[in-house]
Design a protein around this nucleic acid. Structure first.
Lengths: 229, 229
DNA sequence: ATTAAAATTTAGACAAATCTAAATATTTTT
DNA sequence: AAAAATATTTAGATTTGTCTAAATTTTAAT
């Protein structure tokens, strides 16, 4: 099935809101999309008719299985284009969101597969968010500085960003390795450093540069992994 | 000023039709866009109000100076994307038109300038059509096999596609060089060979491979060159 | 368990882009 | 130069996505 740009924007917004609150409400969605509640209701009816939503009037709504697949497809396109814009065209990571908002609505599956191959199948976009693969699968892993404190505080280190001796020296000094479980205590916006604690030890802080090389899986907080096809 | 996707499609179609007939008519445009004459009239009024068209009811129409600049900007985007799709993503030249029809409506001047630079400022798209530069200027030159026999038959060789000894050997044998004036007599669709004549000599034919390396300027046939900004 | 407040939906309107059918203008034919 | 044929425009309707204002439902407060 095909969707209009407007329908796609609704589906994507619902997908993102569901990450924090399972049941999404009309007003939340209106705020997210900078539109009016009445407009949202109209679109909800349309998406329900297309079997994209589980929706009963006044009761809130969630994406259907089909809806989640559509959403993952849009997220895939958005993040692949962002990667291209930063990595190949030389944009800054903070300049690409709006352009990707347009590019994500280009409708050509073969284009996206060729782009993915051209970029060598990246797993994370320039903001550190995971890129779903063609089946909707994506890494649960994220950079530790991107952990959402509202959702998860504990995370297990699953990979490090490079094998440089400088990085490994620092990690050994801090007693961090693959498998280490960390609790994120606080983030400081001044220098993007974060304070963390390894179980049974006193807290300490790590720099932005180090945080960006630590890829972690949330210990609870099941970021759900699914499939598009 | 900004234009909707639909407005842009009308502007581009009028631009292309103007290449064959100076004054464009409502029915021609309706046929080109696969729509109805009544719909065209509606849009003509809109574009006239936006000063894109010279249009008097029942009298046909042409793009205004402003309209031509807008059209050249759209053509520029279309052809740059086609170049990217073929050269970088590995599409065949016959597979990219539809995708470029979508991509050409992405509205980000900086994106197009970065893409142009990334592609090293190509002057021709994969079909051999010239790509307008940021000011709307483009080569009048085209591959000789793309000469439109309805418009021009005589053309002057202005460049050859490579300096390989094999090519130069063939060109010397055929007596073709920079500045040679050729008359295109006929095209054969079976093998895409074309029959040409050098003034005062008997006609002979050249292969598709050779034709694609011969860049020519029409001798009469004023393909108009303009500026966007 | 009412009432008050907040959230959501319905009703009716609007702009953009399209269509069909009817009216009008232009061009061609005789 | 009038009639016939063709081209173009107008009038009125339709779809999509949006809005405001009014009505309804749910939730929270007393």
């Amino acid at each position: 099935m095909n969707f209009s740009t407007s329908e796609e924007n609704y589906i994507k917004a619902i997908y993102h809101l569901q990450h924090s609150t399972e049941l999404v409400t009309t007003n939340e969605l209106a705020a997210e999309l900078q539109t009016k509640a009445a407009s949202v209701t109209d679109m909800l009816k349309k998406l329900k008719a297309k079997k994209i939503l589980n929706y009963e009037p006044y009761q809130g709504f969630t994406l259907s299985e089909e809806g989640r697949k559509v959403a993952l497809g849009i997220v895939r396109k958005h993040r692949l284009w962002e990667y291209f814009l930063v990595q190949n065209l030389g944009f800054g990571w903070d300049e690409v969101h709006e352009i990707a908002e347009e590019l994500e609505h280009i409708n050509s599956p073969i284009l996206i597969e060729k782009l993915d191959a051209y970029l060598s199948f990246p797993k994370f976009d320039p903001h550190g968010d995971p890129i779903p693969d063609i089946n909707g699968k994506m890494e649960v892993t994220k950079q530790i500085n991107l952990i959402d404190l509202e959702l998860n505080r504990e995370a297990e280190v699953s990979a490090v960003g490079s094998q440089s001796t400088e990085l490994l020296e620092l990690l050994r000094h801090k007693n961090i390795g693959i498998g280490t479980v960390l609790e994120v205590i606080r983030k400081f916006s001044f220098d993007n450093s974060i304070e963390i604690r390894i179980k049974n030890f006193p807290p300490f802080s790590i720099s932005q540069q180090l945080a960006q090389t630590l890829f972690v899986n949330p210990v609870y907080g099941s970021t759900i992994v699914g499939s598009i096809s």
